[in-house]
Write a protein that binds this DNA or RNA. Sequence first.
DNA 1: TGGCCATATGGCAATTATGGCATATATTAA
DNA 2: TTAATATATGCCATAATTGCCATATGGCCA
Lengths: 109, 109
Amino acid sequence: MAIKRKPPLHYESRAEIAKALAHPTRLLLLDALQKSEMCVCDLTDLVGADQSTVSKHLAILKNVGLIACRKEGPMSFYRVTCRCLDGFFTCIETVLRANLDAQRAAMGI
Amino acid sequence: MAIKRKPPLHYESRAEIAKALAHPTRLLLLDALQKSEMCVCDLTDLVGADQSTVSKHLAILKNVGLIACRKEGPMSFYRVTCRCLDGFFTCIETVLRANLDAQRAAMGI
DNA sequence: TGGCCATATGGCAATTATGGCATATATTAA
DNA sequence: TTAATATATGCCATAATTGCCATATGGCCA
């Protein structure tokens, strides 16, 4: 049975944000930007990828509203816009730790 | 400049979990499973996709430790393993709401 | 204006994700 | 054992993501 249908719209928009979070480089960027506002050049050094690559990752984060941008002369300074990211990271950490514990338990340690 | 290098391992494993969360169908599944344990057949009806598709989404969530599975006869019952998902969903909702507000403000309402 | 710097964007190839069909596996009932 | 049900997996075509190069854009200074 089970008629085929699309998931409700609010799951789509939620998934858009989760997708933006689902890349190691973007997690690194968010981590850095949570500490302080930074320009693309410094972020490029930090990440160690092509400047255009970093610029695109920043655009992805900006498009879902996780970060914002301020221009100063020829430079762009990015910053995190929401104070709720810790809740997200904490949840991830909790799951990772639980996985490690489960792994240890399975090995009988 | 900017030497090319890979992101640190902990960002990789964090991203794995975020990736599992980054799909509307999987968000729907988690939402349902947060309310109560459910079997694949009921989840298939709920999602409205092929049973194999649902089974694969469940496998993705299980592989990163977000859900677990209990077999009873020929059926598999899945459940959420961590209590921290609300923190994640709340953060997403916060960002979505901020986006709406910003959109309204931009239109001068 | 011309040249230089910082950033953004277009295009492309390679990789990865997705979803359904067909099929395999496992459990239970007749 | 055979049949039926529930779930998982292999396969494949399509779509989305990623990263780099080349290039465009915009600001600043001589």
